[in-house]
Design a protein around this nucleic acid. Structure first.
Lengths: 333, 333
DNA sequence: TTGTATGCGTTATCAC
DNA sequence: GTGATAACGCATACAA
């Protein structure tokens, strides 16, 4: 690997001049600048970002620790983070948490070893508490999306899941459905609990009874919801509307509904949560009515909070709470 | 930020001893080791990976430049790269190329500034040639997936698109379909051309005529294929089978087919390419018959080639060609 | 076992 | 305009 000294030697000048040329600074004669530039070019010299970051104490880099890069749910979040980071002049590095604490912890450590100016992590609080504590102890600048850390005042991005669920449920009730079910998300996540609470409160406020089968425990994916809905229909239950804690779960249940030759929304109405089908949003059957998470904005804002913390070391950490947006499509009458 | 000197001072020993403790090396008395360890712990000291990498001339890191992280197509590739990287003891950093040359170039530069030991890039050759040339000039160790670089002998992962298309087409012909169409992928990519060639050759070899409407030009996404199929059906054309250059395109066309109240596979049979619906592979309607790219293995192998190059600087670059696997599901009779 | 000195590749300070 | 020189935080050969 070529160094700045090699270039200086070839150009017969000091490293100082080469450094100035590299950084477009004044204080170098036009002839020398041209000569140095030429030598850099012809030798394919690339300066070491490592050395530069070391001396500057700045990496101009943000590390992002996602639960899992292989989940379409995160697409808008990733785009929001990426776009905002680019705009503010930061390089964004993603790592694939692989949904395991061990891997995520490893990358938190990796990023915090001076390789980034700050970090963004996504995750719900129940499961990820140790991860967040680790971040908080090792990194000064970071933002948590969705997760919380009661013990510390930190930068935090939240979604108002309760209100979203409340509104979705109320919508179904106003439409006149009277046998409404809620399929929860994974109950290991606070998010699911908040959505469940919103559902329950909306039912209570409208004098709708919550019975034995009203709450169906599922998770954030297709399979369990498929099985649960299958079971329900096999057992002769006929809900006229279902509110799901996650779109993916809704799609699982929809398959079961179709396999029972029932129609949507004529026989069963569906509302999802997340708006999580980016690529094929208009290509999947049916077009899902859902509570949309403004994930793009959430990602964008997380970068803004982080960069603010990076550039103003004694700025107060902030918490931003986003409201989900109700998207009416074709799965309610 | 705390440094090794701070710790040394607090422990009243030299930096050398702290360094040895940090790296689990011998040559430190048990008492000193314990004392140093305690001080590291209570001060939340984290060594600078930057400085370490600089002096070691090794980052233990691989940078991955994808076209776009927000595309489910890459899921298996990402997983393969991640798993293999982890197994071989490397940190894997993904960046979001955002499908623009400019962004991808930026990250190639970023990674090549001494911040990684090597890079992996995905992309087809026609569009990305400048990117690959840039990589080749700046980085010694890298692997290209799908793309090629005729001017240079490099590590390369390829898929046998031609044979895959040939087999898929032959399958349709053997099944007795006689009005078979091919929806191409984006013709700016070599991949699409190879698949088209496979289709054409299979048709020729079986004495099937290729007519004016036999080749339909689409791309890798839903929209164009949807429009094209819509147009076709509106114009009164009734193919009995279609082979698509990409699964996403197949799904777009499927929507158009359904909107014309035609059945799959009874009225029109479908074969896709890629097997690109990871999360909902069994949840989308219908279950697509397709040529599967072994993307996981391709990702895994790319890391192995790269690490081999990193650890044996004068190893010969290799080219590995993978065969797609035919997955029969529900869209042919 | 311990510590000193040197270097990794860069930027920044300060003479000249 | 130019060039020594000293950092940045760490690892290591070598001396003690």
């Amino acid at each position: 690997m070529l160094t700045i000294s090699d270039i200086a030697q070839k150009a017969q000048v000091s490293r100082t001049l080469v450094s100035r040329v590299l950084n477009n600074k004044s204080g170098v004669s036009p002839e020398n600048r041209a000569k140095i530039l030429a030598i850099i070019e012809e030798n394919h010299y690339v300066p070491s970002g490592l050395a530069r970051s070391l001396v500057m104490q700045k990496t101009q880099t943000i590390g992002v620790v996602m639960d899992d890069l292989c989940n379409s749910y995160f697409f808008d979040l990733i785009s929001g983070i990426q776009d905002a980071g680019e705009k503010l002049g930061y390089n964004i590095l993603f790592c694939n948490g692989h949904s395991t604490m061990e891997t995520k912890m490893k990358y938190v450590d990796y990023f915090s070893q001076g390789r980034t100016d700050g970090m963004i992590a996504y995750g719900s609080d129940l499961e990820n508490e140790p991860l967040f504590l680790n971040m908080a102890s090792k990194t000064s600048c970071f933002v948590l999306i969705e997760g919380q850390l009661s013990s510390k005042n930190i930068n935090n991005i939240q979604l108002d899941n309760y209100t979203g669920a409340y509104k979705a449920t109320t919508h179904l009730i106003k439409l006149g459905y009277h046998n409404i079910l809620h399929f929860t998300g994974d109950m290991n996540y606070n998010v699911s609990l908040e959505r469940l609470n919103g559902f329950v409160q909306a039912m209570h406020d409208n004098n709708m009874p919550i019975q034995a089968n009203t709450i169906v425990y599922a998770d954030y994916f297709e399979k369990i919801a498929y099985q649960q809905m299958n079971q329900l229909l096999n057992d002769g239950h006929r809900p006229d509307a279902c509110f799901f804690g996650a779109d993916k779960a809704a799609f699982g249940a929809i398959r079961a509904i179709y396999e029972h030759h029932l129609r949507i929304p004529e026989d069963i109405a569906i509302i999802g949560f997340d708006d999580d089908v980016p690529d094929s949003r208009d290509m999947i059957f049916p077009n899902l009515t859902t509570m949309q998470q403004p994930l793009y904005d959430m990602g964008k804002t997380s970068v803004e909070l982080l960069v603010n913390s990076i550039e103003n070391p004694n700025a107060e950490p902030q918490t931003k709470i986003f409201e989900p947006k109700f998207i009416i499509r074709d799965t309610c009458r």
